[in-house]
Computed example of a mutant assay.
Amino acid sequence: MKEKIVVTLTQSEAFSEGLDEFLAATGWEYIPRGRRGLDKLRKETGALWVVVWSSEGPVLYGPQGRLFFHPSMAKNRISQHRKGLTVDVMERVVGVRANDKFLDCTLGLGADAIVASYIAGEQGQVVGLESSRVLAFIVSFGMRYYRTDMVWLQNAIRRVRVINADHLEFLRRQPSQSYDIVYFDPMFRVPVSQSQPLSPLRLFADHRPLSGEVLNEALRVARRRVVMKERRDSAEFARLGIEQVVGGESSRVAYGIIEKGGKV
């Protein structure tokens, strides 16, 4: 995405804590809001996207809608887990344990990484890679400024370290066996839901399919296993030579698991 992005404040709030850091990190231009609406601001600046900085973090607005960090699914999953109603898939299938080092190579909005962070706990380490600069900045600063009375959720979010990086390049730089689990949730070839085929997330996301080289690098870096999430009926598992696929008939997604010592 090369379209111009500018940053402004809300009309009702002069919150600017962290704004200078955000502008320095992104390199995006700050435009005073005044009383202008976002459509007028976009038209006057020639920007396709406008980031509105607020006390809850950055929100990206554009023709296809808005994009911001919110731990909705992670919050629900951890809440159910804490009540003893479910054993989350991160623990039950992916195999995350307390004190694990977990590498999420396709962070997106971070739901799986947050759940993994909760399970891994204070002594664990969760790193989330996001190849899109836009997504990486919106999510990382959104995580930083997200506030909730649920301390267990906020702590899990704060422990996720977001890095803007291509996962193959990052994996090549890592020592062997430096993470317990290396995890991939690539953008599905066919969306599970057709309701928002041009949502901002899909526009900014990396649509490249995984390669055998990526999985072999992941196996070198992993201590226990490499896991790939995909649609249950996806041909990606067979294409990549992943034989162990776990997913119930009632679920639309499945998990391909390569144990340490495996090869693709």
Results as ranks from 00 to 15, higher is better:
1 M>R: 07
1 M>A: 11
1 M>E: 09
7 V>H: 01
7 V>N: 02
10 T>N: 12
16 S>A: 10
17 E>K: 14
19 L>Y: 11
20 D>S: 15
21 E>C: 08
26 T>G: 05
26 T>R: 04
27 G>R: 05
31 I>P: 00
32 P>V: 07
33 R>A: 01
35 R>E: 06
37 G>R: 13
38 L>E: 00
39 D>W: 06
39 D>G: 12
44 E>C: 08
47 A>L: 06
51 V>L: 02
56 E>R: 15
59 V>H: 08
61 Y>V: 03
65 G>K: 02
65 G>A: 12
66 R>K: 15
75 K>Y: 15
83 K>F: 12
85 L>V: 13
87 V>I: 15
88 D>S: 15
90 M>K: 01
92 R>H: 05
93 V>E: 00
96 V>N: 13
97 R>D: 13
100 D>C: 10
103 L>R: 03
106 T>E: 09
106 T>K: 10
107 L>R: 05
112 D>E: 13
114 I>G: 09
115 V>D: 07
120 A>M: 05
120 A>V: 09
121 G>N: 08
122 E>A: 13
127 V>F: 06
130 E>C: 02
134 V>T: 11
137 F>I: 05
137 F>T: 11
137 F>P: 02
139 V>D: 00
139 V>Y: 00
142 G>R: 01
142 G>Y: 01
143 M>Q: 06
144 R>F: 06
146 Y>F: 14
147 R>C: 08
149 D>V: 00
150 M>R: 05
150 M>C: 02
154 Q>P: 04
155 N>C: 03
161 R>E: 14
162 V>A: 06
171 L>C: 09
174 Q>I: 13
175 P>V: 07
178 S>M: 08
182 V>S: 04
182 V>N: 02
185 D>N: 13
187 M>Q: 00
188 F>D: 01
188 F>C: 01
188 F>A: 02
188 F>P: 00
191 P>E: 01
192 V>T: 11
193 S>M: 12
196 Q>I: 08
198 L>H: 03
203 L>N: 09
206 D>W: 11
206 D>H: 11
207 H>T: 02
210 L>A: 01
212 G>N: 07
213 E>G: 03
213 E>K: 09
215 L>A: 04
218 A>R: 07
218 A>C: 13
219 L>R: 02
220 R>N: 01
226 V>Q: 10
226 V>N: 07
229 K>R: 14
235 A>I: 04
238 A>T: 14
241 G>V: 07
245 V>S: 00
247 G>I: 02
248 G>H: 12
250 S>A: 13
252 R>S: 13
252 R>Y: 09
254 A>G: 03
254 A>V: 09
256 G>L: 04
262 G>C: 03
263 K>Q: 09
263 K>W: 10
